[in-house]
Write a protein that binds this DNA or RNA. Structure first.
Lengths: 148, 148
DNA sequence: CAAAATTAAATCGTGCGCAATATAGTTTTG
DNA sequence: CAAAACTATATTGCGCACGATTTAATTTTG
């Protein structure tokens, strides 16, 4: 009873590290890290977003994203350019190499699918529960002490 | 269909960050970080372990643990001492302050329990599925190319 | 018993994550 | 329109995470 929440926090912590370790050797041939790969995935869904927009999707601020995106640019996967209609914003867009990587990712997805060894239903259920958990936690973060 | 595994990896990634962000303000008054807190939790379960033993439980190597434990020692929560029967090993043990923190953690657990907003059954189910996922992923890591 | 192999920690370099700060561009207000 | 407020991004500092290397202690082998 007293250790249940602890078990959950440790379970999430361990699963995140295990996923990271599983992806690492698959991404290494492409010179990508796991967070960089996740950033690329969001661009595959919608190209040409701002740094702020990416940060909201990923839950990361510019302190994390700015250097990460610079490395993605240096590796040739993306381009960064100031929005000419609002020079404060930086638009991030995929290069040909960045788009080509989406096709390479198919093999990676298959490897990860094998490694998880879950049924589709189990994956969907787990993903849904994690999204719900994250939403509740971030809802709590947003609340102020005004209620007290 | 094509994005299911991606959704899982992103769901775990986001949940881990959300948990970290939820713990941070609760741990900040004690000068502890989330990984330091997790390390303390393993010592509450079994005190006087070696760095290697802790690393196996936490899934961390000495490159991460050595500096983390030094900070925990500097903050007064633990003591580190070479094992006199095998001077290669460093034994990590709780101080009075480290043991007292276990009682303080009760309030933190309650806050986290509230923030997750899950039923006990839901927490147990989620934790169990994550442990199973982690075990499968680490099983894959352990496998060599000898099968191929 | 001495050389070689193994083991446990520590250290170093790189990248992620976040808080705090800085900088530059835009909008609002007087 | 100029000063103030706001917004987007970049930078800095600290801690975590991991691979690779180093150092010291123990065990194995010849």
């Amino acid at each position: 009873m007293l250790a249940l929440d602890a078990q959950l926090c440790f379970a999430v912590y361990s699963a995140a590290h295990a996923l990271n370790r599983t992806y690492k050797p698959l991404l290494e041939p492409y010179g990508l890290t796991y967070p960089q790969y996740i950033a690329l995935m969001t661009l595959w869904q919608e190209d040409g977003r701002t740094v702020k927009g990416l940060g909201e999707t990923l839950g990361l601020d510019s302190g994390t994203l700015s250097p990460l995106l610079k490395r993605l640019e240096a590796a040739g996967y993306i381009r960064r350019a100031r929005d000419r209609s609002d020079e404060r914003q930086v638009l991030v867009s995929l290069t040909d190499k960045g788009r080509a990587m989406q096709r390479e990712a198919l093999a990676i997805r298959m490897e990860i699918g094998k490694a998880t060894g879950c049924s589709l239903e189990a994956l969907q259920a787990l993903t849904g529960e994690l999204h719900a958990l994250t939403a509740r936690l971030e809802g709590m973060d947003a609340r102020d002490d005004t209620a007290a």
